[in-house]
Design a protein around this nucleic acid. Structure first.
Length: 220
DNA sequence: CATGAAACTGACA
DNA sequence: TGTCAGCTTCATG
């Protein structure tokens, strides 16, 4: 039942928000990696400015960031918040990809690459999966705050690994589907998971679609 | 003007 | 496992 809900929800969101190609087609691979770090707990609009600034200064490459003094990097990434942490994280990531080129990710088994990414400062489960899915093209489903909330609203509890397994089991093991679904969940969350949107959100519509209140409504 | 939320992670009890 | 600090920007009231 939960598995069917996961699939049905994908179709509901897909119909509402469309393909959302911009989510992963925009920017170079390293730009997407930098974006994955900088977007942590921050709005994308702020990240975009910093990415533009990095490009304007011709710093959008692992080598350039690795060679940049930490304090300069802090100044550049400041608009994305948590700037001391993020500057250190971005440097660690830049150093890693200087030694181990971005293209080499496709040669590594998914679980090996995931472990290497998780070992880097500033990369936790979600960011590792974002890089795996949107840069390395590995089928690793991303569980973010909106996904957890969405699951909560469907009466589904679980930690990161459990929710990830649920989505991956419910869906075909397909990179574009995972990419699209995560993008859809975020767009949906931004649109409905605020003060007002709860009663018209996709879970409410899913319930209607199924015609039965088979799961409890979580508190907004 | 004050408050809170935003594509989270790491450290420590 | 759970809690907390880390920081800036922008929308709301």
């Amino acid at each position: 039942m939960k598995m069917n809900d996961i699939k049905t929800l994908y179709h509901i969101l897909s119909a509402e928000f469309g393909p959302l190609y911009d989510w992963w087609v925009a920017g170079s691979p390293f730009e997407r990696i930098a974006g994955a770090i900088l977007v942590q707990q921050t709005r994308w609009e702020n990240v975009d400015r910093v990415l533009t600034e990095l490009k304007n200064r011709d710093l959008m490459s692992p080598g350039s960031i690795a060679a940049l003094p930490l304090e300069e990097l802090e100044d550049i990434v400041r608009p994305t918040g948590f700037y001391r942490n993020k500057a250190k994280s971005l440097k660690a990531v830049a150093e890693y990809f200087t030694a181990s080129p971005i293209d080499s990710m496709s040669n590594k088994p998914q679980h090996v690459l995931r472990k290497e990414l998780l070992a880097l400062r500033g990369i936790g489960n979600e960011t590792a999966d974002v890089i795996l899915l949107y840069v390395a093209g590995k089928p690793s489903f991303v569980i973010d705050a909106y996904t957890k909330k969405l699951c909560g609203c469907m009466g589904i509890q679980g930690n990161y690994a459990e929710l990830q397994r649920l989505f991956e089991d419910a869906l075909p093991r397909d990179v574009p589907v995972y990419q699209h679904y995560h993008a859809l969940i975020v767009e949906h969350g931004k649109r409905y998971c605020g003060r007002k949107g709860c009663d018209s959100c996709a879970v409410a519509r899913l319930r209607k679609y199924r015609g039965t209140p088979a799961f409890e409504l979580a508190k907004p």
